[in-house]
Nucleic acid binder design. Structure first.
Lengths: 209, 209
DNA sequence: GTCTATATCTGGATAGAC
DNA sequence: GTCTATCCAGATATAGAC
């Protein structure tokens, strides 16, 4: 009886990945191989089940991709928001901005297959799937706009910066690291410091130093 | 006879796009729709011929994509190199860097379907096609590294910048504009000025001003 | 140089047994 | 919840006529 149970557990752990397990595997494959190269057959194989079985959990491939994309933004959004709300109320603006940058890169490069999958495949999925992901993205963009507006208001940032353009430049720059980041060449944390340095102070040698 | 010729010309201009014409159309479609969504049938239809006819000009779809990718880098490389070699020998470093940034964005956003197609679909094509494009990319990267090294040497840039990392950040940032750039909201030229400002001086309000 | 016709393959999706 | 079997659409690629 005890042995019987043990066998059942083994069988379960191998095949009954469940809906969330399938999503985890799909996110990892999308991050590694892109959207077009990942078929339902590949996802099923990696999950240890057959392609047809996927349809017990999801109605279509689009439904899987949409779920991955939404989770990807939610993770990075939570990471960035937590990072700045955890700070003391009197923290200076520069430190807050550095924390937000670090949190975004951390989610993208260290933590989440969902976030990296989103960044990698968003431009490859059908229009309808992109559209479904837009509300979630807008919420994250609004969080950044809110932060940057505050930093502009309190005098941390130059007064002539365009908030929207700065946000697009910032997130675009951070996301682009996904194409070449290699943990063997330096941590995401160190990278975030370099990026913050450049954004905050520029790369020009200054006479006044 | 004159009419006969006219008819022939019309027929020719509609269907005999030739190898280069097919490439132009393929580049435009890849830029607009990505790699996976563009079939040979779509390319052929846009070119006014049938899918099978493509194989008179190319041996495979990969061959088309590879040609588009290579041309894309060659165009932006030439644009950037010309921009900096056209300057007087005594031009200050900051101006040279601004010219290089402007040239890259100009090729990407204003001029070339090939360059924008490359940036958009490089991460979507089969590994073998990516590999075939690498030598061309390396040459362009070397051009940037050479420029940045010179600017570091002559004291334009901070002495602690990592050339490779700065190049990756710079090109990644510029390429990311492709995802959202809208000519109705401002020219690529104006955008390049904003980007150069941020990279050179940062976004922090300075006390010493 | 382009056409038609077709071979071959792969992918998403469904139905019904277990 | 998962399997097998199968349908169907769409894609690359080839062959031979014109």
């Amino acid at each position: 009886m005890a042995q019987n149970t043990a066998i059942k557990v083994n069988e379960t752990s191998r095949s009954a990945v469940g809906r969330d397990g399938v999503l985890d595997i799909a996110a990892r494959l999308f991050r590694e191989q892109g959207y077009g190269s990942v078929s339902l057959r590949k996802i099923a194989e990696a999950a240890g089940i057959k392609a047809g079985s996927i349809y017990y959990h999801f109605g279509s491939k689009d439904e899987i991709v949409a779920a991955v994309l939404d989770a990807g933004i939610r993770v990075v959004h939570a990471s960035m928001r937590d990072a700045i709300t955890d700070l003391r109320a009197d923290t200076d603006g520069e430190t807050v901005l550095r924390a937000a940058i670090r949190a975004h890169l951390h989610a993208l490069l260290d933590v989440s297959d969902y976030t990296s999958a989103n960044v990698r495949i968003f431009g490859q999925v059908p229009q309808s799937v992109r559209d479904a992901n837009l509300p979630t993205r807008r919420a994250y963009e609004a969080e950044w706009d809110s932060l940057l507006s505050q930093l502009k208001k309190d005098g941390t940032l130059k007064q002539d910066v365009d908030i929207r353009r700065l946000r697009l430049m910032l997130i675009g720059t951070l996301n682009a690291t996904l194409d070449w980041f290699d943990p063997d060449r330096g941590s995401a944390d160190a990278l975030s410091r370099t990026y913050a340095d450049v954004f905050l102070n520029g790369i020009l040698q200054r006479q006044d130093t």
